[in-house]
Amino acid sequence: MSVLNVENLHTYFETDRGQVRAVDGVDLEIGDGEIVGLVGESGSGKSVTALSVLGLVDAPGRVVEGSIEYDGRDLQSLSDAELGALRGSDISMVFQDPMTAFNPTQTVGRQLHDVLRTHESGPVHPLVRLFGFDHSKEYKKRVIDALERVGIPSPEERYDDYPHEFSGGMLQRAMIAMSVLCEPSLVLADEPTTALDVTIERQILSLFRNLVDDLGTSVLWITHDISVVAALCDRVVVMYAGKVMEEGPVESVLSDPQHPYTKGLLQSVPRYDEPDRELYVMEGSVPNPIDVPSQCRFADRCPEAHERCFEAHPRLYPTEDGRAACYLAEESLAMEEKL
């Protein structure tokens, strides 16, 4: 049973210079309790995919096509109020830079309190909130518990601290505490460790792993760092220029990538066990998202590109235990069938 099922998602931005196809036909499925890594370079459309799920794409962006099903419900047919009730409670999101993701003039505790209160007793009139009449001891205690659970020391005192009084790592812990406050069934984590240094990153990863094991939450982990995927995820989806290039179980994709782009991505990661190996540098750059060519998005940079690749972008073809958007995958599939 899958928690989230995205099919054929298209999210476009209408700009002065033309239409930017940030997400251009993405399929994405997340199973119960599964951690799915969404990997790609910046601008590949991975963040926009997550924002599209929650209906948070800002103008001039718009979901123009595709279906987003959460727990069997079509998210696009929900009213603003229904979607609001879902956000933060059933599906929550962890953002990249905790320093800007929190409101600088509200205490961290108060911001978590707002989330809990909104989903337990509903929104209040702004004046009620401004004068703090909505504040409850019970919610405060639960927020403190949540802060403690993510490993923030002396959470009672930190409850009244402002975001700038936290370190980056601690603040990201607080954000994670906020994301699991209402025990959601899905957390969308948008590069939550990119702004942190490596030792903190490892701590956050293991924290996440534990939370998922405890709560049974599914996670979409967006990253450009394939080593994080290896450490954390069950399945991986590789995106490039608004398209899914390859997907499958982490072990098989990382050990035996089918798509030339995935191969390049893996070879450009330094490895301790092969210190002498030369780092691979992919030629060229991500194509202009405006005036997208009809050819394979990766064809211009692909070392294995051939005639067909310049005719049309390939659909996803099944591989051994995943899928890849490459004619090579189709050809090996055809070969297998012949055998």
Binding site: G88, M93, F95, A101, T105, D114, V115, P123, V124, L127
Partner: peptide, 23 residues
């Protein structure tokens, strides 16, 4: 960004506008 965060956590638009943004 914090406005997007608040929205992603279901905080009502009124509260976002009159409490978070306005202050």
């Amino acid at each position: 960004s914090y406005v997007r965060t608040a929205r992603a956590y279901g905080i009502s638009e009124d509260e976002i506008t009159y409490v978070y943004v306005l202050k």
